[in-house]
Nucleic acid binder design. Structure first.
Lengths: 123, 123
DNA sequence: TTGCTCCTCACGTCACGTGAGGTGGC
DNA sequence: TTGCTCCTCACGTCACGTGAGGTGGC
């Protein structure tokens, strides 16, 4: 009943590339509200925008597509939030590890004559 | 001149999977010290271990293989360090963004009746 | 007619992992 | 003989991107 948007329009409004939108259609993550059976043209509804933004946020946080799908299919807001929260926890643990690794590498780089020089011993 | 190690042994010492070692051989990132031309068996030298560990560290920090190769081929320690440092900077910027996104998502989740409810308006 | 948008294959990319089928040495 | 390790294809995975070749509406 709402005005339909073409992929291009929907792409601009959601900042998801057209290729990505087609991909999401194909894997059933985000289906267009309508598809013209003759031309194959995809049409999205404006009220699909919030959902597309949720998808984009979760994908930006590297949540796998399958998990994003699970989040959207969650029967209950509290379940949904629990799944997201679990992912955020994993992510933060990851960030911590990477941060530690970065620091450790930096300290190696800041120590000119140490482990870095090992490779020159053969000379 | 040093005792040679098989892939399996080298894998255990570097914590790189055998498949990964074969892959690194194929793409020329880490070549075995010797390859038996009859059997195709790969043999690594113990003094390749430090290099393998550098590779592992950089890959753990999601540095693309091509860039790792560039780091190893750097003619000069200062150039090498500059490349690594540039990557670390990019990484930290990334981490910051992700952290912001996580916080913002968390605050949305902590606010029960807001944007999350938009999807139910059609009902 | 020209442009722009849209479409469908099919293949590419990145960094491996999986699995089949087979060999060699203790 | 049994096990374990090693090998080479070839294809799979994940999430798209690229590019060819073609269509439809203003």
């Amino acid at each position: 009943v709402a005005a339909e948007l073409t992929v291009g329009e929907f792409s601009r409004m959601t900042h998801l590339s057209v290729k990505t939108l087609r991909h999401y259609h194909q894997v059933g993550l985000l289906e267009p509200a309508q598809v013209n059976p003759e031309t194959g043209y995809r049409y999205y509804s404006p009220n699909q925008i919030p959902q597309a933004q949720v998808i984009r946020r979760l994908r930006d946080l590297e949540m796998p597509v399958a998990e994003v799908r699970a989040v959207l299919a969650a029967p209950d807001v509290s379940i949904r939030n629990a799944v997201i929260s679990a992912h955020l926890d994993r992510l933060e643990t990851e960030l911590g590890k990477i941060h530690t690794a970065v620091d450790s590498l930096r300290s190696i780089l800041d120590t000119p004559e140490s482990a870095v020089a090992i490779e020159h011993r053969t000379t």
